[in-house]
Design a protein around this nucleic acid. Structure first.
Length: 148
DNA sequence: AAGCCTTCCAACCGCGTCATG
DNA sequence: ACATGACGCGGTTGGAAGGCT
């Protein structure tokens, strides 16, 4: 079954049974995926009013930063303040932003994130590849974070 | 043109919580 | 009260795509 077919089955199922009945999908033989996997896929791709494929606006970035400062890594909660964004979206956004800041500040990346490519391990972070405006922006945002 | 590097995104995994029997 | 199964969340990983050297 192709990916498009799987999506169609998933959408039909949600249409019929709603977005809370995930465990019955596999037993019914509709899909080989677990209910958990189906739910995640639906939430991240098909949930109504999703902003698919567009980058975070400056306003959205600001909200993420403010909410993260207020609630911490409560991505589902933080995402609830961003219409059309999922917890995964917010989490991914924050994670890549943290890596960028860590690189800019010459500090090592977060220890928990296992570097996926060994070739990056010896690379010294530097400003050379970062556009000046980006550096300023990140420092402004980082300064805001420290202050909060 | 080719290889390297970064970023973005989708998905998996483990754990906590909640509902049900 | 307890066991079990399902859902939801947060951390993490891996691949694709595009930019850079």
């Amino acid at each position: 079954m192709g990916e498009a077919d799987e999506d169609e089955v998933l959408l039909n199922h949600v249409d019929k049974y709603g977005s809370r009945d995930w465990s019955s999908i596999r037993p019914k033989g509709l899909l080989q995926r677990t209910g958990k996997s189906c739910r995640l896929h639906w939430v991240n791709k098909f949930r109504p009013n999703l902003k698919n494929g567009c980058k975070f606006s400056p306003d959205e970035e600001r909200v993420v930063i403010e909410m993260q400062a207020q609630f911490g890594n409560k991505w589902a909660k933080n995402a609830s303040y961003l219409p059309g964004r999922t917890d995964n979206d917010v989490k991914n956004f924050w994670s890549s932003r943290q890596k960028r800041i860590a690189r800019i500040l010459h500090s090592s990346p977060p220890p928990s994130s296992k570097s996926k490519s060994k070739r990056n391990q010896n690379k010294v972070p530097c400003f050379h590849n970062v556009p000046p405006l980006e550096i300023i922006k990140e420092f402004v945002l980082y300064g805001f974070l420290i202050k909060v």
